[in-house]
Design a protein around this nucleic acid. Structure first.
Lengths: 128, 128
DNA sequence: ACAAATTGTTCGGTTAGCCATACAATTTTT
DNA sequence: AAAAATTGTATGGCTAACCGAACAATTTGT
């Protein structure tokens, strides 16, 4: 559970933020259906998650309205994505896992690694 | 979620198995209250978890009876503990995290690392 | 052995996360 | 501009994990 200004956020919500960010980069606009497809969850689950993220001020969201990350949401998303990248590279290049395994493990570990561990891993990867 | 004969087991249940194993090693006998203290959960939560583990044939358990791991349960527990150790050493010795950080991260990552990733990490740690 | 303390269970409640179904709003097709 | 298709939401339901309180069983102290 990552800390964002003292508020922890679940693995699941981190996945939503990540998805929103990546979809936005790809398409310059985010629809709930895209999130649903990307994460493999039902549309109603997306609505639910968006409400929660809005409550936490991580997305701008209103009924049937345009969806975007707040700046706090963007920070959080980038943070997770950065962890993902570093982990992916570590699993692929250092541990020699195939791409699929590297992805899978990065996707899960990214949500549980502390800030310090992440920093150290980054240092380690960069100097080797 | 680790696979045990095709049945996945949650992070939480893995924690219970780990605790049971470690308490047994320490005390040669396991009481629910010890699990409760070790994991920092209520006694009623322990009862609940034990029922679930018994259903999955990972512990031998009956009302007010002696508690022990089945051999499948012991295998599962050892598997998690082994991961924990390898991860702890990696975080402490390779990434130079302090003991506390190394423990914390190992505790969380142990539940999400795939078998392959674990094997590779072990190889990596052992040859460096 | 029996009273007190501890431990274990049951019960009812909470929360997060998922789902499907039905309905509402929007977009696309014609 | 209607009809059809798609997308979004509300609702009710499910499961896993936790909790506290009340009660049952066991263990301990004397």
């Amino acid at each position: 559970m990552q800390e964002i200004k003292g508020k922890s956020i679940s693995s699941s919500l981190e996945d939503y933020l990540e998805a929103i960010y990546e979809i936005y980069i790809e398409k310059r606009g985010v629809k709930a259906i895209d999130i649903s497809k990307k994460l493999g969850v039902g549309r109603s689950s997306v609505t639910e998650a968006l409400k929660t993220l809005a409550q936490k001020h991580l997305v701008n969201y209103s009924r049937y309205g345009v969806l975007s990350l707040t700046s706090a949401g963007e920070d959080a998303a980038k943070n997770v994505i950065e962890k993902h990248k570093v982990l992916y590279n570590f699993f692929k290049n250092t541990l020699n896992l195939d791409e699929h395994e590297a992805q899978e493990n990065a996707c899960r570990v990214e949500h549980v690694l502390s800030e310090k561990a992440f920093q150290s891993l980054m240092d380690f990867v960069n100097k080797s």
